[in-house]
Amino acid sequence: MRFKLLRRRLTISAPRMKVRSAMPWPLRWASAAIVLGFCGAISLWAFELGKEIAGVDNGDREELSRLREDVVKLRQERDRIQSILNTSGSAITLERAAQERMASQLRVLDAENRALREDLGFFEKLMPASGTEGVAIRGLQAEVLSGAQLRWQVLVIQPGKNTPEFRGQLELSFSGTLDGKPWTMPLPGGAQALQFKQYRRVEGMVNLPPEAVVKNVSARIVEGTVSRAVQNVSL
């Protein structure tokens, strides 16, 4: 019987035992609080010691505060400069647009000036020469352009006052060489009807054959079957 009891106490089937402290729980909580407070004090002391070793003190805090104020001022200055740059950029854009408009207006004025000079020369040719009567060709101009094209212009006048209206035709012919051989070509489409009282300016474009070289342009004013005026121009 004793052997069985002894075996039960020495084996796994032995009854469990709990060891309890004889110290009351308020004392245990107080001891834990004392230990935590001691640990906190040691941590605070270590932190302060670390600050002293690292050189972090109240002066550094003031320096940090001053640096923060400087950063704020620098940001404000940056924003002000950026605003000035944006305004300058807008002003430069407006100035460039104004310059482009001015350049465009200058080109238009230059074109108008050239047209006025041409008109001035045109109307100067309207002044009849002394002793001139009837229909006359006062200006025949021709210019070969790139692309095998020729631009021509004829000014026809009828000097005098209270002259009757002229009704006739304008004939043009172009002569020169084509592939090294003599060449002549009339105005494409035939003669142009001409009707005016004092003056008339007629102009147009002609497509030339490839390899054609124009050396002379002839203009003739015809009334019915009668030739009233002829003028030639060499190129």
Results as ranks from 00 to 15, higher is better:
Gly59His: 09
Phe174Glu: 13
Ser104Trp: 05
Pro188Gly: 07
Thr132Arg: 12
Cys39Asn: 06
Val108His: 03
Leu67Trp: 12
Val217Pro: 03
Pro164Met: 04
Leu67Gly: 05
Trp25Asp: 12
Phe123Gln: 12
Gln158Trp: 08
Pro164Cys: 11
Val206Ser: 09
Pro209Glu: 07
Ala30Val: 11
Trp25Tyr: 03
Arg151Asn: 12
Ala98Thr: 10
Arg68Trp: 13
Phe174Ala: 08
Pro15Val: 04
Phe122Arg: 15
Asn207Cys: 05
Gly204Pro: 02
Arg96Thr: 08
Leu150Asp: 00
Gln153Gly: 15
Leu140Glu: 09
Arg201Ile: 05
Phe122His: 11
Gly131Ala: 10
Ser31Asn: 10
Val222Gln: 06
Leu140Thr: 03
Met185Val: 10
Ser65Phe: 13
Arg8Cys: 07
Lys51Ala: 06
Arg20Glu: 13
Pro186Trp: 01
Gln99Cys: 08
Gln99Val: 09
Met185Ile: 04
Pro210Leu: 04
Arg9Gly: 01
Arg228Lys: 15
Leu44Cys: 06
Lys215Arg: 12
Glu100Val: 04
Ser90Val: 02
Pro26Tyr: 08
Ala41Ser: 05
Ala33Leu: 01
Ala98Phe: 05
Ser146Trp: 00
Ala193Thr: 13
Ala129Arg: 14
Met102Gly: 03
Leu49Gln: 13
Ile92Gln: 10
Glu133Lys: 13
Glu133Gly: 07
Ala33Ser: 08
Pro128Leu: 06
Ala148Arg: 15
Pro128Gly: 05
Arg220Leu: 08
Leu27Ile: 07
Arg61Asn: 09
Asn58Ser: 12
Ala111Thr: 07
Val35Thr: 14
Leu150Arg: 11
Arg2Trp: 03
Ser227Gln: 06
Ala32Lys: 14
Arg228Ser: 02
Phe38Ile: 04
Glu211Phe: 07
Ala22His: 10
Val206Met: 06
Leu94Arg: 04
Glu211Gly: 06
Ala103Glu: 13
Val72Asn: 11
Val233Leu: 12
Arg66Gln: 14
Leu64Pro: 01
Ala22Ser: 13
Pro182His: 02
Arg138Phe: 00
Arg9Tyr: 11
Ala33Tyr: 03
Arg96Gln: 07
Trp45Tyr: 05
Leu106Gln: 15
Val156Phe: 11
Ile137Lys: 08
Val35Gly: 01
Gln76Ile: 03
Ser90Trp: 01
Val35Leu: 14
Leu64Gln: 04
Met102Ala: 15
Ala229Val: 06
Asn207Phe: 02
Glu203His: 14
Leu44Pro: 00
Ile157Ser: 15
Met127Phe: 11
Ile92Pro: 01
Met205Gly: 02
Ala33Lys: 09
Arg80Lys: 13
Gln105His: 02
Ala111Arg: 14
Glu48Tyr: 08
Leu36Lys: 14
Val233Ser: 05
Leu170Arg: 07
Lys125Ala: 14
Gln82Gly: 07
Gln153Lys: 15
Thr93Lys: 04
Ser83Gln: 10
Ile137Gln: 06
Gly37Asp: 10
Arg68Lys: 14
Gly55Cys: 04
Ala97Asp: 13
Val156Ile: 15
Trp183Leu: 05
Met23Phe: 09
Arg228Thr: 09
Gly168Thr: 00
Pro186Phe: 01
Val154Ser: 10
Phe196Tyr: 03
Ile81Glu: 11
Met205Gln: 07
Ser43Pro: 01
Pro182Asp: 11
